[in-house]
């Protein structure tokens, strides 16, 4: 049996600008972050999410675009893109700052690093 897709769309048959997206195995972690990114989008007319039932691993994401040229699906794509960019930025800033912090640190006195996976020391 094929696993269900992680996201499905419930479109508005009359209007491509409106849609509800159903995310499986997602919760407030993604819902709230994505909601925040899309609410800042100038062409978002409405954006909100809900978890219809706590024992169902489903997240409903409602999106309405204010631009007739922009479908809800494309708007979601733009929101996802901007969230990706933001995380990418946090990631690179964190890595940069960590390297800077470690360079400024006097040589470690404790036992050698236990994990060989990454050259990271405890703060």
């Amino acid at each position: 049996m094929q696993p269900p897709p992680p996201m499905t769309m419930i479109p508005d048959p009359a209007d491509a600008r409106n849609a509800t997206f159903v995310f499986l195995q997602e919760d407030h972690t993604l819902g709230n972050a994505l909601r925040y990114m899309l609410i800042k989008h100038p062409k978002t007319h409405f954006c909100g999410y809900s978890i219809p039932h706590p024992s169902e691993a489903k997240m409903h994401f409602r999106l309405q675009s204010s631009d007739p040229e922009l479908s809800a699906k494309d708007l979601l794509h733009e929101g996802v893109d901007s969230l990706k960019e933001m995380l990418h930025h946090i990631d690179s800033e964190f890595t940069k700052e960590l390297a800077r912090f470690q360079a400024a640190q006097p040589t470690q006195t404790g036992p050698a690093s236990q994990s060989q996976s990454a050259p990271i020391d405890k703060e």
Partner: peptide
Amino acid sequence: IQEKIRKIEDLL
């Protein structure tokens, strides 16, 4: 988190 987003993006 980036993997989560990529999963959705791929689908889109």
